[in-house]
Design a binder for these strands. Structure first.
Lengths: 107, 107
DNA sequence: TACTTTATTGTACATACTTGCTGTAAAGAT
DNA sequence: ATCTTTACAGCAAGTATGTACAATAAAGTA
């Protein structure tokens, strides 16, 4: 779900391009309360591989939805958090989540 | 973005699986006001190929987000509309759209 | 010295998604 | 008889996305 070089046909298209992708929503969601380290994210987003986590975090960072903060320590420490733009997405991820919960219960 | 045989890790995951995909959001969005025929959808969702339109409509139908109504006429006539479940998604697609518009303006 | 920890990166491969193009049915118009 | 219209279906091919597994750096600990 690359963002660069893609022109959106409309705002809906644009938004979906920006937060579509298998893990983006979940990552933004688990980051809603603050800072998480790489390993914490990995545990929070069950089922994601390290490769995909790294890749998706990079995309989200390039997209300015999250911030990556590196601590110069050994072993390495990196913390991720939402940008203001990222935070704006939380309400509707929340809404989608409610819808999803309701739907899952219905079946 | 197949839905069958996929188990969601959480409600966010579930929701994204169900409306993720390049065109699903846009199709649901243009159907918000009522019924559209295949050809009308094709014109409304600019850039979609007939193949993808058909495929995406099938997925949405299997997913019970839209209804397909066939008129036994020649040449064929088929109308698509939202189910109640599909309609529930409109508010937050709308919200995403607002966010998208704001973002697009910001750049 | 060897082992552990953390946050990656690299390669190879598999699967999913998307596009482009051609083809079809069947009634009505020319 | 041929053309037009509508809503698709089929196939080949490319691109994007995702998985599995191995490897790295560099300090601290056993």
């Amino acid at each position: 779900m690359k963002n660069k070089n893609k022109k959106a046909h409309c705002a809906v298209d644009y938004a979906f391009q920006r937060i579509g992708g298998k893990y983006k929503g979940r990552i933004l969601w688990v980051l809603r309360d603050g800072f998480l380290r790489y390993g914490e994210l990995k545990r929070a987003v069950v089922g994601i591989t390290p490769k995909m986590l790294t890749q998706t975090l990079k995309e989200l960072e390039a997209d300015e939805l999250i911030v990556r903060k590196v601590y110069l320590e050994v072993p390495p420490k990196v913390e991720y958090s939402l940008t203001d733009t990222g935070k704006e997405l939380i309400p509707f991820i929340s809404q989608m989540r409610s819808w999803g919960e309701k739907q899952m219960a219905t079946n």
